[in-house]
Computed example of a mutant assay.
Amino acid sequence: MPLLLETIKIEDGDIHDLSYHQARCDRSRHELFGSTDTLDLLSAIQAPTKGIYRCRILYNESIHSIDYLPYTAKEIHTLKVIPSNIVYDYKYANREALDTLLQMHSDVDEVIIEKEGYLTDTTIANIAFYNGKQWITPARPLLEGTMRAKLLEEGFLHKKEIKKEDLKTYTHVALMNAMLGFKILNHFKIKT
Rank of each mutant, 00 (worst) to 15 (best):
N177M: 02
L18Y: 03
D89K: 12
K164G: 07
D40C: 11
H21Y: 13
Q134K: 09
L69W: 11
E154I: 04
I57N: 03
R27W: 09
I57Q: 00
I127C: 00
S28L: 14
K74P: 01
T72V: 14
T78L: 05
A149P: 06
H172N: 12
I112W: 10
N177F: 00
Q46D: 10
L4A: 01
G34F: 09
L167K: 03
Y53W: 09
L180Q: 15
L58A: 01
M104H: 09
L4S: 00
L4F: 12
Y118I: 04
I57C: 01
R95S: 02
S65F: 14
T120Q: 06
D166M: 12
I8V: 02
G34C: 07
I45V: 11
T123I: 08
D17K: 13
H158L: 14
K50I: 10
E165F: 11
T100E: 10
N94I: 02
D37L: 15
I124M: 10
E6A: 12
T192R: 15
Y170M: 11
N126T: 09
I45G: 07
N60Q: 07
R29V: 13
T122H: 14
R140M: 10
T171C: 09
T72N: 10
A23R: 15
H172E: 13
E61Q: 14
H30V: 11
L4M: 02
T72F: 09
K183G: 03
T100L: 13
G117C: 12
T171F: 07
K168G: 03
H158S: 12
Q22G: 08
K150C: 11
L4H: 01
E116D: 10
A23K: 15
H16W: 10
K183V: 15
Y130G: 01
N126Q: 06
D67F: 15
L101K: 08
L39D: 03
T192Y: 13
M147V: 13
L79H: 02
K133G: 07
E161F: 04
H158K: 15
F188Q: 04
K183R: 15
E153C: 09
K74V: 03
A174L: 06
A149S: 01
S19T: 13
N60W: 07
T120A: 08
E75N: 14
L180C: 08
G51E: 01
I190A: 10
I57A: 00
P2W: 15
K159Y: 06
T38F: 06
T146A: 03
I113A: 04
H172V: 06
K133L: 11
L142T: 07
Y170Q: 14
H158R: 14
N131D: 01
D121W: 09
N94S: 05
D107K: 09
V81K: 04
T49R: 12
H187Y: 14
N60C: 10
T120M: 01
H64N: 03
L142Q: 04
L151D: 00
